[in-house]
Design a protein around this nucleic acid. Structure first.
Lengths: 209, 209
DNA sequence: GCCTCATGTGTACACTCGTACACATTGGTG
DNA sequence: CACCAATGTGTACGAGTGTACACATGAGGC
């Protein structure tokens, strides 16, 4: 056990979370992972698992927390990018696609968790989506786009945008990340969806019965 | 074995599929089900499984086929319902909600399968959604709504509608079927989403750069 | 310098799992 | 009637699973 000395605190914990993500990235579903399987992938003895997590659901919840960080990074980059409205959708979608490719396993976990086995994980992921939508609402209000919408309708539109992007996520995860053509098609298609949603939002007030 | 005599052909096959759905309905994820577990729920010996399915993925694929029947029934009912445009969205959403409640396990399976472990099941479910969207396109064209859209843009709008409904599906499956208030909220919210999408589609052509 | 706590290891046990094999019973076809 | 294919049953085995328990080792506070 000479190599034990250089171990940082929390290292095994990270190895276990990373191991779960790796398995998900290899095509496994999170709900079908077992404790032994994860510890094996992490190169750790099974009993070590319990030093950090009570069970697999607990590990899932902590993964959602890290997922939150990934999403926040993505938002920050999108915000820093540009403010001219015409290219805004296009570039935001591009940033989204890039982040998904760079963190494929995380987003696979997110897509699985939306209809996953653990209610707690499901709701945690939905919470992240709600947060994302509300931040988007803040931005749109600040940029004075959609000034004719009241708060409730703006929130509705933002929710619809986030849902649309989330569904595109499952498209994106279904094709090989190296298949530039398919990825480009999904990017274009997502952009069109969002354009259509925003056209709907622009004409919303005036069209209501 | 006196009770063996009254067995119809294919009965065990149905019992197995129903057993898988039952387990999914109880909150389990399809990806985490095992052959023994399903046969136990079906009241059948494990080896019987292989008389009808090669493995769990195979059973999943056959479940998707049955899911197709459920979706077609739902479409037929929606079509038979009414043709006046103003209430069309409202009533279609109501029919959707009713069918989800009546076939909860099937739709749970569908929601899980969208990001499931088996690529074949994933693509089969997407195929069903594509079919649904194309039928919706036929109807909209026949009813002469959205006459200003060319075929590609109409298909785009229909795809967006189907995605929006599919996401609402996961909302609906997340609340108790007896919670009338929450179910009603989801129904109203879904209706608003679809209205917004259709407003976007109506103003699509004229707004494009 | 010692003691304690957080962390990691090794062993063990009772289950469950997928699946192979041989056998029993049926309904339909020659 | 004899026979076959389809379908169901029972048994068996090796591998994998969750987790309990006792033990080892390092870091930090007294």
């Amino acid at each position: 056990m000479a190599e034990r000395q250089r171990r940082k605190p929390g290292e095994t914990r990270e190895k276990l979370m990373q191991a779960a993500l790796t398995l998900v990235g290899k095509g496994r579903h999170f709900a079908s992972l077992g404790i032994r399987e994860v510890t094996r992938q992490a190169g750790v003895v099974p009993t070590s698992f319990y030093r950090h997590f009570r069970n697999m659901d607990d590990l899932g919840l902590q993964l959602v927390d890290e997922l939150g960080l990934v999403l926040r990074r993505m938002m920050r980059e999108a915000r820093a990018n540009g403010l001219q409205a015409d290219k805004l959708i296009d570039e935001s979608v591009a940033i989204f696609v890039a982040h998904v490719q760079a963190n494929r396993s995380f987003f696979l976990f997110m897509a699985q968790g939306l209809a996953g086995e653990s209610r707690a994980v499901r709701e945690a992921i939905r919470g992240e989506m709600r947060f994302f939508a509300s931040e988007l609402g803040n931005d749109l209000r600040r940029l004075q786009l959609m000034p004719h919408l009241n708060d409730a309708d703006l929130a509705l539109a933002c929710d619809l945008v986030v849902r649309t992007v989330a569904f595109s996520l499952t498209d994106l995860l279904g094709v090989s990340p190296d298949d530039d053509y398919q990825v480009g098609e999904i990017r274009r298609r997502t952009t069109r969806f969002l354009q259509m949603v925003l056209v709907g939002a622009s004409h919303w007030q005036s069209d209501r019965a």
